[in-house]
Design a binder for these strands. Structure first.
Lengths: 196, 196
DNA sequence: AAATATATTGAACTTTGTTAATTATATATA
DNA sequence: TATATATAATTAACAAAGTTCAATATATTT
């Protein structure tokens, strides 16, 4: 029954693709069983033949997006820079991705879906999103001995929480008030954490 | 028409009180126009005579909760400690409040209500929640010259973002996995930011 | 006491997630 | 090939939630 599996994966793919498009475009508020099914070219009830519920469908997208984030970061960092400069660039790029796609920020850090708590693998992808996206740059710093591995771990954790905090306040509470102020504050924090 | 105003304020109060109870108890998922009205002793439709919509009702609670947080912090800090030690205690107490009432954390930092973006006064309360709750302890540090005011501002901002980031990851994504780990990590961050 | 204004309410509409029964399609068998 | 069966897809229908509005109840004024 190999054909059946291929066909099933294909149809699942249509739903996933539609979900990805809606999340990246209009965001979570526009996502519904019916809007996904519309874009996938099926009736809304058909979704339930391939996914447990709407949450499962959404969660499947997390890994896809994380891969996209990693590529986005790798594309943006300049090859002629190295060391801490490259970590700085990578971190800013990671941040820039979520500014460009607020719906994906919401998916990663805000939405409290039904059984998000049970899907450990997905929680792990989210928890390590920044670390993995900036992996190459960090490896350069640690391997070359510019920074001690333990110090690097602490700085990574610090960066992660500071930037998620900043993103939450900016996206959910419009603080800082302007995009410019947000960039100033986030750069200040990144520079200070990496520079000290 | 003073009586009318008093009566109106009274009935508004019943709805607000009901909303507060539900948010502190079962949290946002249990909150609905019907559940609030039930507890207030009115029909669901009556709410619309006193509030524009369910969002307005919820937002009104923010200032109330912030006052409660301030009292909670002031009660918890020891009077015999001072300086940075007291700032440390106040900050931990602020954090402890949200751990005790996850529904209020959700209200402050997670929910994206309709016109949250327009209510500048409410956004300001949320943005300065930690700063105001720990005001007294910080004043002690700054007035006594233990810390420069500019340095204090930077540390406040750093603390705010780190702790909101930590709370978001713990509450929304169960990371760190255990309560103990969360406390360890948050204490580590607080100590490091205040101590350096 | 009647007339008018105000407050409260239940019915109803919309949207969204979900289930189940019905219809359509593909596959297997005679 | 024609029929029987299994599988897939869809429509109908329900529940919960926010919201509106016409109808009812209550309070106020004359």
């Amino acid at each position: 029954m190999k054909n059946k599996e291929i066909q099933e994966a294909r149809i699942k793919g249509y739903f996933i693709e539609a979900t990805r498009n809606i999340l990246k475009g209009e965001g979570l508020k526009a996502l519904s069983v019916r809007s996904v099914a519309d874009q996938a070219g099926y009736s809304y009830a058909t979704m339930y033949n391939y996914f447990k519920d709407i949450n499962e469908l959404v969660f499947v997208c997390v890994s896809d997006f994380q891969e996209e984030i990693k590529n986005y970061v790798d594309d943006k960092i300049s090859t002629d820079s190295g060391g801490l400069q490259q970590v700085n660039e990578a971190t800013r790029a990671w941040l820039a991705y979520f500014l460009e796609y607020p719906g994906i920020f919401e998916l990663f850090y805000v939405v409290r879906g039904g059984d998000f708590g049970n899907k450990k693998s997905i929680l792990e992808v989210i928890d390590t999103s920044m670390e993995r996206a900036c992996e190459n740059a960090w490896n350069g710093v640690i391997k070359s001995g510019i920074m001690d591995a333990n110090v690097a771990e602490f700085k990574k954790a610090r960066l992660k929480y500071v930037l998620i905090g900043l993103l939450v306040m900016f996206m959910n509470r419009r603080t800082p008030e302007s995009y410019t102020d947000f960039i100033l504050e986030s750069n200040r924090q990144i520079d200070q954490i990496l520079g000290q």
